[in-house]
């Protein structure tokens, strides 16, 4: 029903603008407790508690970094074990070919490299970036989201979304203004 509404009205959602970070956190909490689930907040800098207020709990970025680091470390060992022990063994006065202490620096560097790549690519991937187009950019005023204003958007695909009721709900949160976000 709500999906249909969105396509019929051509509406992405309703966007409320706030002056202070505390206001948007309070509004997000109120929206959650009013039963809205499809909502997101936008701010020029990270705001403490805002992600939790819109219902976000854990982030998988940390797990991805761990996996990246472990993969980097093991592939560093595998690379050196195979090249120095199997593919191109050099006998240095009978010392063991598996001279792993000498391989620690390269294993460490590859751990860091793969961990860092996982952090950046994982963060971008989970965030769905790059995404040059987004309906929010239709709202002229939204450019203040990268300067000094805080926004809360309740999306039209939310099951509780209702053009009139949601508008009046948002206006009760004392925003500076509420905007329609067209598709």
């Amino acid at each position: 029903m709500s999906e249909q509404l969105a396509t019929v009205t051509g509406l992405y959602g309703l966007l409320a603008e706030f002056r202070e970070p505390e206001q948007v956190v309070a509004a997000a909490r109120a929206a959650r407790s009013a039963g809205y689930r499809r909502l997101d907040a936008y701010s020029p800098q990270p705001v403490e508690g805002l992600a939790e207020a819109i219902g976000h709990r854990t982030s998988r970025v940390a797990l991805l970094v761990l996996v990246g680091g472990v993969v980097g470390c093991l592939s560093g060992f595998a690379l050196q074990y195979w090249t120095m022990g199997v593919a191109y063994p050099i006998n240095v006065a009978g010392r063991p070919l598996n001279s792993w202490p000498a391989w620690v620096p390269v294993m460490f560097e590859l751990t860091v490299l793969c961990g860092a790549l996982a952090a950046v690519l994982g963060m971008l991937g989970l965030n769905g970036l790059p995404m040059p187009y987004h309906p929010l950019f239709h709202v002229r005023r939204f450019e203040a989201a990268t300067r000094n204003r805080f926004f809360l958007c309740i999306e039209a695909r939310d099951p509780l979304f209702d053009r009139e009721a949601t508008q009046s709900f948002l206006e009760r949160q004392k925003p500076l203004e509420v905007y329609e976000v067209p598709w």
């Binding site: 819109i54 982030s59 970025v61 680091g69 560097e109 860092a116 952090a119 970036l129």
Partner: peptide
């Protein structure tokens, strides 16, 4: 890349940034 300051994005961003800092710290010493 279409950054729009979403709270969800900031949350992941801060985690990633902190972890990058954690990785870069031993790196610079190494």
């Amino acid at each position: 890349m279409g950054w729009r300051g979403s709270a969800l994005h900031w949350h992941r961003y801060e985690t990633a940034y902190l972890l990058l800092a954690g990785l870069a710290t031993p790196l610079v010493i190494s």
